[in-house]
């Protein structure tokens, strides 16, 4: 009986990761439009402003959050290890600092809802009216 539960649960989780969508979110007042190239620019430290000229503060999920690996692979086109290698090149040469990391979708939503310059991402299923979705992947 327990085995059956484990199997169903595993199947559910696997299905969930396979079909989970990542929603890139900003503050509801943010009118900037963003495509994948623009988002990549902000999350790799190659740009610091939205296309309307306002300052952008990217926020990352920590590696323990499920949406992090999806965001790295679907949006940035890299594995989380590759992104870590990328940032270590910049950090240890004084050329850049990686985005601040938050531990969960809930923390991310709260941080983005509280900061007009913030840009982050969460599991699309966790989106609510406190944030605005600019892209889904």
């Amino acid at each position: 009986m327990n085995w059956f539960k484990v199997i169903t649960l595993t199947a559910a989780l696997t299905a969930n990761t396979a079909f989970a969508e990542v929603a890139v979110i900003v503050h509801p007042s943010n009118a900037a439009t963003l495509d994948q190239a623009e988002i990549t620019r902000l999350f790799t430290g190659r740009g610091a402003t939205f296309n309307n000229g306002n300052k952008a503060t990217p926020l990352n999920l920590s590696e323990s959050a499920a949406a992090r690996a999806d965001f790295d692979s679907k949006v940035l086109g890299k594995s989380s290890s590759q992104m870590k290698a990328y940032w270590s090149k910049l950090v240890f040469t004084g050329k850049g600092t990686p985005p601040k990391e938050l531990n969960s979708d809930a923390e991310m939503k709260a941080a983005v809802a509280a900061d007009a310059n913030a840009i982050g991402y969460i599991d699309a299923a966790a989106v609510d009216a406190t944030v605005k979705v600019v892209a889904k992947f």
């Binding site: 290698a85 990328y86 270590s88 090149k89 240890f92 040469t93 004084g94």
Partner: peptide, 23 residues
């Protein structure tokens, strides 16, 4: 502008040649 003791930028990997994780 950076000023102080810096890595000489000879090679592509000069800046982070000691950070093995980066390559």
């Amino acid at each position: 502008l950076n000023a102080g003791r810096l890595r000489t930028p000879f090679y592509k990997y000069s800046d982070f040649r000691d950070v093995g994780y980066a390559y």
